[in-house]
Structures are given as structure tokens and as C-alpha cells.
């Protein structure tokens, strides 16, 4: 499959979240894609807290903690990225980790009160005419 990025021109503004000092790709290609994610989550495949849809929005409850408080580097990367509101899908894209892994890590952070989340309400919101108006206005203004 083709990567979404086309080489050459970059019509999109750089995402500031990607340029936070210290943020680098934490995904180690040489370790193989199947091993690392499970190591990060200590083998867990389901989050302990919360249910995370791909478009669940997450925001850090505060700045990145300074001392180690039982968090791995991936947890800290999530807190760093979540200084702005970000969806679960975006986190997986920026961290280059599988969705399931990000869910487990987010569950840990939610349990510690380090992130708050806003889950989309499936179907219910879909009868809110303001939502449609906002989306149509936004699309027309593109």
C-alpha cells in the first residue's frame, strides 16, 4: 500500500505537536512490529479504564509530569501530544503504534487521572441539526 504522504510538496502546515522537543519516533523498526507493542503494555491487550473509539478525543489533565511516576516513555509521549485535544486515531498515527496498544496506554493514563476524554455518543448526536450545519458551513468555506 502506498504511504499517505506524497513526497515533494507539503500542502499541510506542520503539526506543532510533532515538533515538541524530545519527541521522536518511539517505534523501533528493528525490534519488529509484533513484539514492541506488547512489551509496552506488558502483554495487556485491553485497557483497564475507559473505552476508546478511534475518534474519542483526549486531552492531558496537565503538563508532562517531571519525575518518573510509574510511566513508560510511551505514556509520556501521549501526555506530550495531548497538550492539545487529540483523537485516539491521531495518537496512533503520531506514535506509529497499533490502535490496541494506544488504547491500553490511554487506559493507564485515564486511571491515574492524567488525561481526560470525551467519548463521541454513537448515533445520538447524529440527530443534532447543529452538527450538520457546522459541517456543511465548514465544508463550504474550504
Amino acid at each position: 500500500m502506498m504511504p499517505p504522504e506524497e513526497p515533494g510538496q507539503e500542502p499541510w502546515p506542520q503539526d506543532p505537536a510533532l515538533h515538541t522537543p524530545g519527541h521522536e519516533r518511539i517505534y523501533d523498526e528493528s525490534a519488529g512490529p509484533m513484539v514492541r507493542p506488547y512489551v509496552m503494555t506488558s502483554g495487556r491487550i485491553e485497557p483497564v479504564h475507559g473505552k476508546f473509539d478511534l475518534i474519542t478525543l483526549v486531552v492531558a489533565a496537565g503538563p508532562e509530569p517531571e519525575g518518573p511516576i510509574g510511566l513508560g516513555p510511551e505514556h509520556l509521549s501521549i501526555i506530550r501530544l495531548c497538550q492539545q485535544v487529540m483523537s485516539v486515531a491521531e495518537l496512533t498515527g503520531h506514535l506509529d503504534l497499533p490502535v490496541a496498544t494506544v488504547r491500553v496506554l490511554l487506559g493507564d493514563l485515564l486511571g491515574k487521572g492524567l488525561v481526560t476524554m470525551q467519548e463521541p455518543e454513537p448515533e445520538a448526536d447524529m440527530h443534532d441539526i447543529r452538527l450538520y450545519k457546522a459541517v456543511i458551513d465548514g465544508l463550504r468555506a474550504l
Binding site: E10, W12, H94, V99, L142
Partner: peptide, 19 residues
């Protein structure tokens, strides 16, 4: 599909993976 996502997106399209 990828082309359409890229044409409309305000940020560089990302990719999410499920194993």
C-alpha cells in the same frame, strides 16, 4: 480513497494500524 482523504485534510494525513 487515500487521495480523497489527502485532498480534503487540513493536516498531513495520518495512518492508523490495527494488528
Amino acid at each position: 480513497k487515500t487521495t480523497m482523504v489527502g485532498t480534503v485534510s487540513e493536516t498531513r494525513p495520518l495512518r492508523t494500524e490495527e494488528i
